[in-house]
């Protein structure tokens, strides 16, 4: 494995490309003894659009939460954008990593615009924002993002009044508001039907390309993976069991990898 840490700290010695995410022998358990992750190894390059697949309970969400700095882990090594991570991310890194949880984590009682503005909190940690006052420049940025995501006319609508697809886009806008380099999205389109999910992913894909972002998605649908992801990783029983360019993962292969698991589950 490369040692990107020193590389990032001093620009002149930048010789090896730093991976966006480097995970080495990562172990995790919510309860002692029952491991959810059992030695995950993973390297995702900068600018990649990667999908993580796997049966329920394989540890996909747990992996995402660890990468987002929300879970301290007992064993292994995680480097995010070249910085070592152990539990909570330090503020500078925090800003560079956008995380969209499965149920989006939007505040339903706030408007779309207010939710997007929350993405700027890492830049404004004073009391002013705690009282609800954001700098005008941030408000303009948030509006611009809503415009890009085709939500400008819904800006003042409370989130609980928005449709599923609109909420998804608000969550994306909030993450983009952070100005991240890396976006982690945990099955965030799983509540949408296929065409809508594809629509949302197309948005994310285009934006990621335009801005040179690295995106890691947990996805269930092979069609979506084949259409949007460049690379796919399959997690099973807490281990990486498959990794390839997304187009190489065909239906028969996918069924074969997932298959015995489903049969086991049915028993």
């Amino acid at each position: 494995m490369t040692q990107p840490l020193t590389v990032l700290q001093s620009e002149e010695t930048l010789t090896v490309p730093t991976p966006a995410v480097a995970v080495e022998d990562l172990w995790f358990a919510y309860r002692e003894g029952s491991w959810i992750l059992r030695g995950v190894d993973l390297q995702i390059p900068m600018g990649g659009f990667w999908a993580i697949m796997g049966p329920s309970g394989a540890g996909k969400t747990t992996l995402m939460r660890i990468l987002a700095g929300l879970l301290p882990f007992p064993r292994g090594r995680v480097l995010l954008l070249g910085h070592p991570v152990r539990g909570e991310l330090e503020p500078a890194l925090r800003r560079s990593v956008g995380y969209i949880p499965q149920q989006l984590g939007l505040v339903r009682g706030l408007t779309a615009l207010e939710n997007v503005l929350l993405g700027s909190l890492a830049r404004h940690r004073g009391w002013q924002t705690a009282l609800g006052f954001f700098p005008r420049a941030e408000i303009e940025r948030a509006m611009a993002l809503l415009e890009v995501l085709d939500l400008a006319d819904r800006a003042d609508e409370k989130v609980f009044r928005l449709s599923g697809g609109e909420r998804q886009r608000v969550a994306i806008a909030r993450t983009l508001m952070q100005d991240p380099q890396l976006i982690l999205a945990d099955e965030f389109v799983s509540d949408l039907d296929l065409p809508r999910a594809a629509h949302v992913l197309a948005f994310v894909y285009r934006l990621a390309r335009e801005r040179g972002l690295t995106v890691i998605l947990n996805l269930h649908e092979l069609q979506l993976v084949q259409e949007f992801a460049e690379h796919v990783v399959i997690l099973k029983d807490g281990r990486v069991v498959f990794e390839s360019p997304a187009l190489d993962l065909t239906w028969p292969l996918f069924r074969e990898i997932m298959g015995d698991y489903e049969r086991e589950a049915l028993k």
Partner: peptide
């Protein structure tokens, strides 16, 4: 919903922000 709090911690919100915005 703990996910909302988690998402907010993810954007770097402090306790006072969580009180005001969540």
């Amino acid at each position: 919903d703990p996910e909302i709090l988690e998402a907010m911690r993810g954007v770097g919100a402090k306790r006072r922000h969580l009180i005001r915005f969540v």
